[in-house]
Design a protein around this nucleic acid. Sequence first.
DNA 1: GATGAATGAGCTTTCATTCAT
DNA 2: TATGAATGAAAGCTCATTCAT
Lengths: 192, 192, 192, 192
Amino acid sequence: MSPRTEKQFELIREERRQKIMDSALDLFAKNGYDNTSISQIASKADISKGLLYNYFKSKEDLLEAILNTGIDELMDVFDPNKDGVLEVSEMKFFLEEMFKILKKHRVFWRLYFSVTTQPSVFKLVEKRIEEIYKPLTKMTVDYFTRQGHENPTAEAILFGALLDGISFDYVLKPDIFPIEMVKKELINRYCC
Amino acid sequence: MSPRTEKQFELIREERRQKIMDSALDLFAKNGYDNTSISQIASKADISKGLLYNYFKSKEDLLEAILNTGIDELMDVFDPNKDGVLEVSEMKFFLEEMFKILKKHRVFWRLYFSVTTQPSVFKLVEKRIEEIYKPLTKMTVDYFTRQGHENPTAEAILFGALLDGISFDYVLKPDIFPIEMVKKELINRYCC
Amino acid sequence: MSPRTEKQFELIREERRQKIMDSALDLFAKNGYDNTSISQIASKADISKGLLYNYFKSKEDLLEAILNTGIDELMDVFDPNKDGVLEVSEMKFFLEEMFKILKKHRVFWRLYFSVTTQPSVFKLVEKRIEEIYKPLTKMTVDYFTRQGHENPTAEAILFGALLDGISFDYVLKPDIFPIEMVKKELINRYCC
Amino acid sequence: MSPRTEKQFELIREERRQKIMDSALDLFAKNGYDNTSISQIASKADISKGLLYNYFKSKEDLLEAILNTGIDELMDVFDPNKDGVLEVSEMKFFLEEMFKILKKHRVFWRLYFSVTTQPSVFKLVEKRIEEIYKPLTKMTVDYFTRQGHENPTAEAILFGALLDGISFDYVLKPDIFPIEMVKKELINRYCC
DNA sequence: GATGAATGAGCTTTCATTCAT
DNA sequence: TATGAATGAAAGCTCATTCAT
């Protein structure tokens, strides 16, 4: 008789939206953004193609939403803006947190690396990524400065590259990459 | 008619083939494999679409050829099969060589990373990549063993990840990544 | 419950119906029938898409209602059925009335001309239009006959075409078409 | 063995292009631009959808080409720029020419009127249309001035509207509009 | 060898209409 | 009465690939 309440609508919408994003993330990560069709996504999310456009105004918009959500989750857990200073004890926490995220959101990170290499699509999140990277870099430079390193900038850049490489290798070959061993080694090395 | 003519034909063919591959590499690296059309490649190589199919039997085949050529060049320069043993002095050479290649074939490496994240396309070269990685890994494990490291496997994996990360970062942001500084630092660190 | 309530309902319905039609007329006239979506109309009328279908059983039905209402208003003002005879004095009134309508319902006439050129949609009102045109033509033929014209039929057809052309030109370029001047000239010419 | 010569290609292309435009003109005029699909056009022209895009880069581009061709043909026959002066004898020629064109290109004119009422599409040819209308208007104003009319501007505007109305009525109802009679009457009236 | 016209499947997107609530 | 989620058909368009010449 009466129409659905606003709250009911909101709830349904939120669930559907999430389901679409989950389906799309899986497919994007597995097959690449360009090789995933709206049909496939809709089919995986058990909805019609048309409905998808009720939730996202384009395929690109969907990708952007996925990436932003991933970045948001990341920043929630990881927020580097607390005070911007990394104590030795915090470095350990930082690394542990990073590995936790890497494992939990492996699929997302796979998509992330794939997007990174595609300018046409990377521009969607370039700004936000930079906003994250900048304070991170600063933090690690400061950290290595306080540690008394001779060339803290180089150290920080190598540290960043190392984390990138580890993430990349793990995300692409999770079954053979010895993530736990690497984690331990890393903590040994950088949190002495 | 004469054998010379045939040789000339062969030469022309080879040159044209190379031109197609160069054009395609550029476009693939810049816009992505999926966002590059055969028309664009043919146009950039100054030939017709039809002729392109005279040289490569499909778009995928063209990509495969590009990747294999890149890998071949890599192995020519870098051949790790000489004797499979990396002396300390050779490690320095190895790293210098690697950075040389990275700079010279930056566009290729950009394509390489982009392809790596797309299984549908990575399968084309997966085998060969593994064939390269395996001895490399062994070599570095041996190296770190001989160096007396406590956990040479972990060290080798970190070393590999570091090289991957450096390559990745450099290739995506060549203008801001301090490649020379990183190279010096790396040699300092690993070739003592 | 009480009849008054029902009357109020009726009133609300009527108002809403009118609002939908007004919104649709605006959009149809501005962007064309095909380029106007039900969503746009519903949004402009501040109702839901679903409710619109409570008032009109299809988009075509809505268009038909708009056209018929326009035609009805026209006939109310203009009623050529009074006695079917046009005196010289009445011709002046007729023309003045026509220009009044043209200015007041310019948007409607714009839609009218747009619809006229699209058979798939014109068929909706073809019959009624003919019912209007026929007596009008007869009336003018009689008028020109009484005026002693040599070829009153030709005169009537030219007169009709002239009115069509004036309407068309004015409706499409209201800002540059000198409607007042044309009106004066027309009255001078035909109501001597 | 040898590829087609450039001339052969050119010939084939020109024929195909014309066939596509003819098919499209028919369908656009009959069903309207928006109600005609690329599929229908391709099917009527006996080609695939894809090929159509080898000749026209979009549906809009196709429409534009049709309209421009129509306008070109019109100007070839009708070129009002000869000297810009209309003698009495020339007025007769002018009108006869106009009716000839109207009959010969009736389908085009139907499309023209339909396009005129759709701003989204009219903009494609607005400029060119104005370039034609302006000298025409000037010419007729001059003509009526020379004829000694009291208000030549009004006369010219009425004359223009009359021609528009006649064209409109004829093009929409060619079977019942007495085009020959109207032509005679018009010549009588304006070329005394 | 060399051309580019031609195909057809598949893409993203839109939208009139229906329907559970 | 009133909502807007949901559908599905159809639109415009792209592109790897083939083929007659």
